Amino acid sequence: MSSMKKSILALGLMSAGLMSAQSMDMKNMIKIGANVGLAVPAENASANVGLDLSYQNLITPGFGLGIATGYSHFFGRENTVNNVNIDNNDFGVVPVAALIRIYPKQTGFYFGTDLGYGFIVGDDKVASNVASPDRPDGGFYIKPEIGYHNRDWNVALQYQKTFTGDKGEIGTQKYNAGALGIGVGYNIPLGK
């Protein structure tokens, strides 16, 4: 079984265990969301769109912990490196992360981050039209965000990044799996 399948299975088992272990009240919720952004810096990708799925438990009224996953699709872009045109492939990022949120008030401003590992999926090569290195398999994942929340909705400015070191570089083009964007999430309370 591939490492990605094992990670997704483990995440599913952890989610089921956490959800069944918690009391059935409004402190526990599933968050479903979508995001869109621009690749930063835009060397091998231009933009991204994604779906987010997370489970959150409010440890206190102002502090939440949980687990997060989803899928972000990065659109490859053409780039010129040393007078050679490169047609970079699309790729995706599947994070497996811890979720941390701080809510100073019941409604209003919030901030937090997701921390974990981002699996990079897609074509095996960075580019399709030149001899290119293998794309990275993944790396440390972080997604800080700041936004507005109420009982049902979250809207946030977010930055997501999967660190790949120097893997997947073509000449002076660094492999980038990061984007600055906007996310919207809907909260589904578990319990009464």
Rank of each mutant, 00 (worst) to 15 (best):
T162M: 03
M14S: 14
P136C: 11
L180F: 07
K174L: 06
M26K: 15
G50L: 05
V121Q: 06
G112K: 03
N89T: 05
A45D: 01
G165Q: 06
G50Y: 04
N187R: 10
A131P: 06
D123F: 01
G171S: 05
S46N: 13
S132A: 15
I188G: 04
L190G: 04
S54K: 15
G33E: 00
D90G: 09
Y159R: 01
T80Q: 07
G168M: 06
L115P: 00
Q158H: 02
P133Y: 13
F91R: 06
A156G: 03
K192R: 15
M19G: 12
M1E: 14
D25H: 05
S128P: 00
H73N: 11
I120C: 03
Q160D: 10
F140A: 15
G66R: 05
G168P: 04
K5Y: 11
K27N: 15
Y186K: 11
G138L: 08
G147H: 00
G118M: 01
A45L: 00
G168Y: 04
I100N: 03
V93M: 02
T172D: 15
M4K: 10
S46L: 10
K31P: 01
D137M: 14
L180H: 01
G185P: 00
V94T: 06
V49G: 08
G138S: 09
D87V: 10
G64A: 15
N83F: 09
S72R: 08
M29I: 03
N176Q: 11
G62A: 14
N48C: 07
N150M: 04
Q56V: 09
D90R: 11
A68K: 09
D87T: 08
V40F: 10
K143W: 01
M1H: 09
V130M: 08
V49N: 01
S7Q: 08
S2H: 09
V49F: 09
A177S: 14
M14K: 00
Y117W: 15
A39H: 02
I146C: 13
P189H: 10
I170H: 04
V96M: 13
T80G: 02
G70C: 05
D137N: 15
K161W: 13
T172S: 15
L115Q: 00
I67W: 10
A98K: 02
K143S: 13
G118D: 07
G139L: 15
G92H: 05
P189M: 12
T69A: 11
Y110R: 05
G50E: 08
I120L: 11
I67P: 13
P104K: 07
I86A: 12
A68V: 02
S15V: 05
K125H: 04
F63V: 06
V126Q: 03
H73T: 02
L38V: 13
A10P: 03
E169W: 03
L190Y: 10
I67N: 13
G112N: 06
N48R: 09
F119D: 04
A131C: 04
T69W: 02
